[in-house]
Write a protein that binds this DNA or RNA. Structure first.
Lengths: 193, 193
DNA sequence: AATAAACTGACGAACGTTCGTAAGGGAGGA
DNA sequence: TCCTCCCTTACGAACGTTCGTCAGTTTATT
């Protein structure tokens, strides 16, 4: 399906060059068609972008939920640690995450509203899913009483974002280094004993 | 001086819209001149951008050094905590930091080399300046022996970046909330006792 | 025969850039 | 003081290019 091919390639271009930096000419060239042919599948650049963005947002959401909704209840320590590593691997392999992250930070001005809405939804979901685990862990005494579930959750998302930054800015290796350091300090900071 | 006015306004436009999103027409209009007149002061868009970027990078560097080179040696806890808060306030008030951060993440493709070079220099400087304080603190027994100076430093920069993300993506209030959480967990994670 | 999806061709608008030109001010000599 | 030369800075007009978009036509599939 050409439409899907356009989606895929458009996503990679948006991720790499941003909305303004990505041109329909370049995208269509890589697809192997003329840029005018894109209009057989999408009304215009905006619709193409929003379609691609919504798809990516949904896949991000699904990944998160599939991880944090797990019926099995692993140890908090394992859950969090694996989540960080899975997400970093995901970032490395999937254009989705790079694209989603870049657009969440710097959306095209005239589509800002829609983009921000989806981004917030995603963050809220992560936050709520996490909080459940932290509350459970707090009751079980896994977390030090000085650290509330809300605090542990907020700090964890900060660790996640810090990892994203290093992935965006540095590379896999430097991100792994930072992740190890962040995780060591973070877990020491919230654990009980 | 018109040249400086161009610099200032160009910086704010680059910060808000990115390199491709900022047009010489918009910039010059806000300055109060025609876009052709910019060429009396700069060879072109690239030179304007690089000039502005180098200036911003230098000011960022100066801010960092003035803070972390302080001849007086405050307590590590105070130094770090105040640094985080000062930087968040700086981000709020200065276009410099927003601009620098955005361009470090997503530089214009054809100027990537130069931009990355300056960004790395800045990060290295922060890292080295921090490491000194952490080494000192480690010798003084302020930091828990399980946490090396390098680890504490890397984790702290991650906290800083996490704060940047929330500033970029959220707002001052949400950033303050996250900062409090991150800081509480971080300090618990590295302190001795 | 009908329909989807590719094509060619052209459009106005915006982009960064270059040209020649004119206004203004300071320096130096008559 | 006046005149001239030069330098700076602004301008209008236009450049070639690229942008996203629209209309009409051909090709391929069913």
């Amino acid at each position: 399906m050409t439409s899907n091919k356009i989606r895929e390639i458009a996503l990679s271009h948006f991720a790499k060059n941003g909305y303004e930096g990505a041109s329909l000419a370049d995208i269509s060239a890589e697809v192997g068609i003329k840029k005018q042919s894109i209009y057989n599948h999408f009304k215009g650049k905006d619709e193409l972008f929003l379609t691609v963005f919504r798809d990516a947002a949904e896949r991000e959401m699904q990944f998160t939920e599939s991880y944090l909704l797990s019926g099995s209840k692993p140890l908090l320590k394992d859950l969090l640690y694996n989540f960080l590593h899975s997400y970093s691997k995901r970032y490395e392999q999937e254009d989705d995450t790079r694209f989603f992250l870049r657009m969440a930070f710097f959306p095209p001005v005239h589509l800002r509203g829609e983009v921000v809405e989806y981004s917030n939804k995603h963050l809220d979901t992560i936050g709520k899913l996490l909080e459940q685990h932290f509350v459970t862990a707090a009751h079980a005494g896994t977390i030090h009483p000085e650290v509330t579930a809300a605090t542990a959750s907020a700090a964890f998302i900060a660790v996640l974002d810090g990892m994203f930054v290093e992935l965006l800015y540095g590379n896999m290796e430097s991100a792994a280094l930072r992740l190890n350091a962040s995780w060591l300090v973070y877990w020491r900071g919230i654990r009980n004993n």
